[in-house]
Design a protein around this nucleic acid. Sequence first.
DNA 1: CGTCGCTTTGAGGTCCTTCAACCATGGTGG
DNA 2: CCACCATGGTTGAAGGACCTCAAAGCGACG
Lengths: 238, 238
Amino acid sequence: MVSVSPCPHGYPGEACIVCKVRHISVCAALSATELSALDELAQHVRFSQRETIFLQGADADWVYNITGGVARLYTLLPDGRRQIVGFALPGDFLGLAMGKTHPFGADAIEQVSACRFSRTAFSLLIDRKPHLLRRLHEFATHELSLAQDQMTLLGRRTAEEKVIMFLLGMRERWTRLGSASVTVHLPMSRQDMADFLGLSLETVSRTLNRLAREKVIILVPDGVRITDLERLIRPVAA
Amino acid sequence: MVSVSPCPHGYPGEACIVCKVRHISVCAALSATELSALDELAQHVRFSQRETIFLQGADADWVYNITGGVARLYTLLPDGRRQIVGFALPGDFLGLAMGKTHPFGADAIEQVSACRFSRTAFSLLIDRKPHLLRRLHEFATHELSLAQDQMTLLGRRTAEEKVIMFLLGMRERWTRLGSASVTVHLPMSRQDMADFLGLSLETVSRTLNRLAREKVIILVPDGVRITDLERLIRPVAA
DNA sequence: CGTCGCTTTGAGGTCCTTCAACCATGGTGG
DNA sequence: CCACCATGGTTGAAGGACCTCAAAGCGACG
């Protein structure tokens, strides 16, 4: 069950100030005084593993700032086919479109912490803070650019290229979050990767194991270690 | 060669007012007085068939408002594989990200008319007009939503579903532009459709001809006539 | 220690691609 | 005027990359 607390850190009115993802999230657009105003609107919530954050098509009562954990964002076809349109990491914002309903569903892969705001209240805040809107727009165009890259991957890359680019993409995202390491944290299942890459889970598994057999990576629980970055990059090199 | 004229309609300072796509483009956010200010910044340009509008990775000196014709937006892989990330129709805006370089290339399929603005000047205008930024943001999130739909199509749809959804999608876009008709205008080549749908041109051709043989559509020059909308929708129905 | 969820691995099949030839159209110049 | 060629579209045959179906392996957990 989702747990809600208005003041997660125990410092009333200062939660945003001490937030670990503040400078990489949309909130970075705000000054210290604006932040404490934002605190008034914020609710800190947690979702346990596999819990639904919101369903595709549901009313978008809240918008979310992910502060911890990884969520999957996906669309479902009526016959059950699924496309994961993205993985949300700490710092990511859910609800960029500020629309009445969610165009995709989201659920927690690991335990997820998030800061949530009433959509209507946040929308009003945006109208008063153009620099926040500009920041939101930057996030949206960044997402659009990623989506277009993913379209190229889905439409024109081979299975091996897809898997490799996924590994490199996740590596880069974790690196930018400061948790640089040779081990790439991958909390999602093979099925999740497959639904992100437009493959079957068996093809993902086979490809990862082939790369491991060729000593380019090592499979570890919840991730991979990249042992030969050169050879990993080669098949997808610019 | 691209032809430039500051005043395409012959009414100095009023080009925007009489613009046919004004109320559907980003400009709809502006008042009449703001529009005449925009005229100062605007240059009307034309691109002939097959002409490049800008290259992937090139400096984004200009942003564009498409006023007529159809352009293809695409990314290229080093080995020549191409993914068309979208078709730009009248009313569409190119340069939403306002970034220093274009993340994708664009060229004219038919003769294209466009209104262009210096990126830096337009960026400054945005800073002074929050409602224009909001409009830009709406365009960006709409594009993002389309891109995510396209990811689902590319990753999880069959060839037949891809082609049908393409036809229905183009039909809807033309309808929204007011040129409703049973004939869907498709100025792009089979290769363009294939690179948009993640298929080979032969598969696109075969699928279209099978639909024609089954009397669901009729192939006409530069488009199709939909003769049995019910049966066309059935395979992709929600 | 048995069960459950996820992953791995194998065998066989299929949807789509590739390669290739042919066809339609339209512009060009002898 | 029409052979000629260029461009884009259609159609066929064969092959392959990936999928589906199936079974077995492997922790984790009660």
